[in-house]
Design a binder for these strands. Structure first.
Lengths: 110, 110
DNA sequence: ATTTTTTATCGTAATATTGCAATAAATAGA
DNA sequence: TCTATTTATTGCAATATTACGATAAAAAAT
């Protein structure tokens, strides 16, 4: 008990849930938004942008990286983080397909 | 400690995170997919579709309802659940705008 | 070589989530 | 009324998440 029964569900549902879960924290959305804004790959000054301690940011970055949303490359002293372009497009498509599956126009609700 | 510091973040980031969080479990994605598939509003036979106990399903339905993704109406004996059309369109737009903010083409990553 | 800068990891506390058995609540049907 | 049927709620155990201080690791600068 307590743990999600991942093996009970189909891959597609798990994949959508995984991406969504990674996006399911305001700090992580803020990190992504910042990375998009500065476009060029920016490293740890994300810490200065958010009201969270450095270890917390590092943890959130790790989760975003694990989900495949961002990637980080060691750049001398620091680490350069940026959006993972390839996965981003993929995830965009997946979510667009998911939301597109339902057509509100013909919604025949009670 | 342990709780998300919601008040530290801007509304937009919290909104995206909230929807994403609700979609962040395969059972909830499966429930949505099922509701879309049967189109007409279907009640508690979701329980027969998923390998989870009735109270667990009920809890997931509650979370989806709280997030505004689905709505439930009492229909005699049972409850009729369906996609919340209005919010669905809204959420679709929000996520499309979010993913559309980044243009992988000009991604100038390290 | 020592210090600074930058990021990751460890350890720990607080809180949240997931899941279910048991049970309640509410209506339908006999 | 009594009995199903259907859904929600309660209570609890197991696990996950969030957050941060302390500290490690690794390269840069002095």
């Amino acid at each position: 008990m307590g743990a999600t029964k991942t093996e009970y569900f189909i891959d597609r549902h798990n994949e959508i849930a995984n991406i969504a879960k990674a996006l399911g924290h305001p700090a992580r959305v803020a990190i992504i938004d910042y990375l998009i804004k500065v476009d060029a790959c920016i490293c740890g000054d994300i810490v200065n942008e958010l009201p969270l301690a450095q270890p917390t940011i590092s943890q959130h970055l790790k989760e975003l990286k694990n989900a495949g949303i961002i990637k980080g490359e060691v750049e001398g002293n620091s680490v350069c983080y940026c959006i993972d372009e390839k996965n981003w497009s993929k995830f965009h498509k997946i979510f667009n397909a998911f939301f597109g599956k339902y057509n509100p126009a013909k919604g025949s609700c009670c």
